[in-house]
């Protein structure tokens, strides 16, 4: 089963990379770019067949390693379906 995990910075946490990308986009002449926040996306192949158990396992993975919940939020997507 294919899953995706999206990790993004929490609102209010400074994102210097996002800010730099935002400025670069404006520098390229893209008007109307109001805000850019960047994050990470993980593609994970799981042996699980049950979406619920997969989601539970992914949540543990996020809490233990993939995200730092002091500064980051995460969102899990299983087989294209939002699962968080």
């Amino acid at each position: 089963m294919q899953a995706r995990v999206f990790v993004t910075l929490k609102n209010g946490v400074l994102d210097p990379q996002g800010k730099a990308i935002e400025n670069a986009l404006r520098g390229l002449g893209h008007e109307g770019v109001e805000k850019v926040r960047q994050g990470k996306m993980f593609e994970i192949e799981l042996a699980d067949t049950d979406a619920d158990s997969a989601r539970e396992r992914l949540q543990v993975m996020c809490e233990r390693l993939l995200a730092n919940t002091v500064i980051e939020n995460y969102r899990i997507e299983i087989g294209g379906q939002d699962a968080s």
Partner: peptide
């Protein structure tokens, strides 16, 4: 130490990138 929970908080990228 922050990641391991020995100390509170987290270290992020330098503001100047």
């Amino acid at each position: 130490a922050c990641e391991a929970g020995l100390l509170p908080g987290a270290l992020m990228s330098n503001a100047a990138g």
